[in-house]
């Protein structure tokens, strides 16, 4: 028990250092400020162009904005977390302390998730202004479900956690910035498309595609992360009911996937020669 407490304590230090560094960083500040301005001024103005769905349009634009901001934050901060430490030889200093490489990796990951979560929370709080303004003039038929909007944001953070895990995974063996950057972007794009491609494969037209194409598509579907599972935009925009079972399985899927990727990252990083 005391050993576990010791491990968590060490990880906590890396977590707080990463979190503090990220929150004070220029990337976080710049992205958050621009997103806030967009959220508070642009969204209510644009949503008023809707014929009958003013509040829903405001929520749509807000959720897309959040997705866009969080993915940029995750990718740019995530690929830099380990790479910057190695470049500046900080890793030697950190790993010379009684911290294992796995604690280092996990601490970095949790720090990254903490930064993304902080940004999401700031944007969620600012959404009260933009969405409330939009709904005052033209109230929606079904009242806005703030719980659904919060869950959509939370699931977005989970999605970013998976992407962040990949960025750390690629950084664990890459010797330059570009491989983790482009590979992580590639994972995001593939993960966002696999469900639609699978749906297409299962249509009569899709079944006529060559067997190898179908096989590869199905393989990609099962191996790469299915990020569409964590997309709750429709539920948030139109206040549709959400099943508890779906929430439970989606969170479980995310945690299991992150564990697999980070375990691989730790295994590779432990074998890496940092010299």
């Amino acid at each position: 028990m005391s050993a576990l407490f010791f491990i968590i304590n060490k990880m906590k230090e890396i977590f707080f250092v990463t979190l503090k560094g990220g929150l004070k960083g220029k990337v976080f500040t710049a992205i958050t400020v621009v997103a806030l301005i967009f959220n508070i001024f642009i969204i209510p103005a644009v949503s008023l162009m809707s014929m009958r769905l003013v509040a829903e349009t405001a929520i749509t634009i807000f959720l897309s904005l959040v997705s866009f901001v969080l993915i940029i934050l995750t990718i740019f901060l995530g690929v830099n977390l380990i790479f910057a430490d190695i470049e500046r030889n900080i890793t030697f200093t950190v790993l010379s302390l009684p911290i294992t490489r796995s604690q280092y990796i996990f601490g970095k990951f949790y720090g990254l998730v903490g930064i993304v979560l902080a940004c999401a929370l700031i944007l969620f709080c600012s959404s009260f202004i933009s969405i409330t303004i939009s709904s005052i003039f033209y109230p929606p038929v079904i009242p806005i479900s703030w719980l659904n909007i919060f869950l959509a944001l939370f699931f977005n953070v989970l999605k970013m956690a998976i992407i962040g895990a990949f960025s750390i995974f690629f950084s664990s063996f890459s010797t330059n910035l570009f491989l983790p950057l482009f590979a992580t972007v590639g994972i995001y794009i593939i993960g966002s498309m696999t469900q639609e491609i699978m749906n297409f494969i299962n249509t009569p037209y899709g079944m006529k595609l060559p067997a190898i194409t179908q096989f590869i598509s199905k393989g990609v579907y099962y191996i790469f992360p299915n990020l569409e599972l964590l997309d709750l935009k429709a539920k948030a925009i139109y206040s549709l009911p959400l099943g508890i079972k779906y929430i439970f399985f989606s969170i479980g899927y995310s945690i299991i996937y992150i564990t697999i990727i980070l375990s691989l990252a730790v295994w590779i990083f432990q074998k890496r020669d940092l010299v």
Binding site: T57, I61, S64, S192, E196, I197, E228, K233
Partner: peptide, 24 residues
């Protein structure tokens, strides 16, 4: 439609609204 849905990734709701605005 299918290509647009796949390439919209997670922004298909926003793209739908933008297509509507353009039509309007």
């Amino acid at each position: 439609q299918e290509m647009l849905k796949i390439s919209s990734i997670e922004h298909k709701f926003l793209i739908s609204k933008l297509i509507f605005f353009k039509s309007m």
